[in-house]
């Protein structure tokens, strides 16, 4: 029997790792991958609560999270491609056009 509290702790740790990756990596694509890690951490906690409450709705919500993650990946990588066409490299530190 998997305790629900352990699922929540695992979810918190995974989310923290994803957050560290998002804030400190320089590569734009790996920042998006870190967002995927964070979304997965949320899904773990949703599934844990669904198990704890014996309620289907947590898993349905996790399915919608996966759908939104797919949309986010598509748009984010489209942006990376468009960016990479105009300039070499995908380092976030080079993207300073909006700064004045």
């Amino acid at each position: 029997m998997v305790p629900a509290g352990a699922c929540l702790v695992l979810s918190a740790v995974l989310f923290g790792i994803g957050l560290i990756g998002f804030l400190s990596r320089r590569n734009l694509i790996l920042m998006l991958v870190s967002v995927e890690i964070m979304l997965n951490a949320v899904n773990v906690s949703l599934a844990g609560f669904s198990r704890q409450l014996q309620d289907q709705r947590g898993q349905i919500l996790a399915l919608f999270v996966i759908a939104v993650a797919a949309a986010e990946a598509a748009v984010g990588l489209g942006l990376v491609l468009a960016l990479n066409r105009n300039r070499p490299g995908v380092s976030v530190e080079d993207l300073t056009q909006l700064k004045w």
Partner: peptide, 24 residues
């Protein structure tokens, strides 16, 4: 691999994970 601000990012992530752990 990491931007020069990576200690700040690591601190934020560790802090968030610790808070979530405490809350759970």
């Amino acid at each position: 691999r990491f931007g020069t601000h990576w200690p700040l990012g690591a601190a934020a992530g560790l802090m968030f994970a610790a808070l979530m752990w405490y809350a759970s």
